[in-house]
Amino acid sequence: MKSLLLLVGLMFSYTCFAQKNKVVSDSTKFNRYLLQHTSSFTFDGHKPSGAGWDILEKQFADNQFVAWGEYHNSTVLSQLSSYALEVGSRYGFKNWCVEVSPFVASELMRFAASANPADSLLMVSKDHPNYGTFPFFKTTEDAQMLVTAKKYKYHIWGIDQEFQLAFPYAINHVYNAQSAKIKQTYKPVRDSLLAKWWMPAVKLLDSLRNAVPQPIYKRVLDDIKVSRTIYYEDNSLMRATLMKKNFYQYYDQTKTKNEKVFFKLGANHLAKGLNLMTHLYDIGNSVYELSQRNQTNFTNVYFIVRYTTEDGRIIDDLASTENEYPKEFLQLYDKDKWVVVDLRPFRVRYRNDKTLTDDTYQIIDKYDFVVVSPEVQK
């Protein structure tokens, strides 16, 4: 009987204690941390200034791998990335990993060394002005990144598949590098490949491949063959596997395993854990685990944009019912500043009580920083 009374007393005391100390909701915790761990910086197109940038710059000092997860086709973000390349070089970064194929990376290196990289890019993309022939490299601001990479002696690593719009460029490049005899014999093959350039026939690719003697050009054609399959099957697993394979081919050739790498890829590729869209372990998770193996560090930054334009209208992602980015971060938008949220202190025991959106919980788990851009993207 005494034991029963004691148990009832303990339960009563616990209930009273719980009532006096109500469980704090996730949204309350989140907003409290926002006040403590949000900063900002301004950017005039040349040099950023402010506490937010100081935090981002410090990541180059503290990490072997710094990953900027971008929203694509932003001239402003290209300008900021150009400055990041300059800053990274001060901390020993010498490799720049981008979302292009190995072949296109070699072409970007060649353009960077040319007298006018902007003219080279514009000339290549003249047939595809909206998207560019090379993914995410088509503007004068993109060319400035190449100039900066050249100035600070970066190696450009292209780890992605071949971009579909680059198929004709790559096929012509391989063909034009051959002897007069091979070109004469295989001109019908080249012409047939270009006639259906968006999905070239495998037999024709293999025919040309078997004729060219240079291993580097055989690989270009092999990459096109793999990429056409990825496009045809919409095969995200094949693409993620290819990105890892290409990365390690570059990485294994470095002089030391602690060489630093700056990544500028689409944000979803750079998540820790599963990719938010494909739900696969992508290149970001692989590099994160590599940093643990090396006993170095990896940090990833999730860049988001609130306002875009479509047919002359400004679209507010915060007001959309199908918003691309979490509303909890979109509401931090400042038209004059880049807003930086350090998510690392947020990794407390969230209860997943649905007072935050599911996307917000995942961003906190998968990224170290969120940066809200002031850009109205065109």
Rank of each mutant, 00 (worst) to 15 (best):
K181G: 04
I182Y: 12
I182C: 03
K183G: 01
K183F: 02
P188N: 06
D191M: 02
D191L: 04
D191T: 01
S192L: 13
L193F: 13
L193W: 15
L194W: 12
L194T: 09
K196Q: 09
W197D: 02
W197Q: 08
P200Q: 05
P200M: 05
A201Y: 00
V202H: 07
K203R: 10
K203V: 15
L205Y: 10
D206C: 02
D206R: 02
S207C: 13
R209T: 10
R209I: 14
N210G: 15
N210E: 15
V212K: 11
V212R: 11
V212N: 11
Q214I: 02
P215E: 06
V220S: 06
I224V: 09
K225L: 04
V226D: 05
R228N: 00
R228T: 11
T229W: 13
Y232A: 14
R239F: 04
T241G: 02
Y248D: 14
Y250V: 12
Y251M: 07
T254D: 08
T256L: 00
T256V: 06
N258S: 14
N258P: 01
E259H: 10
K260A: 06
K260N: 06
F263Y: 13
G266M: 06
N268P: 12
N268D: 15
N268T: 14
A271F: 15
G273C: 08
L274G: 10
L276N: 09
H279V: 04
L280V: 11
Y281V: 14
Y281T: 14
D282V: 10
G284L: 13
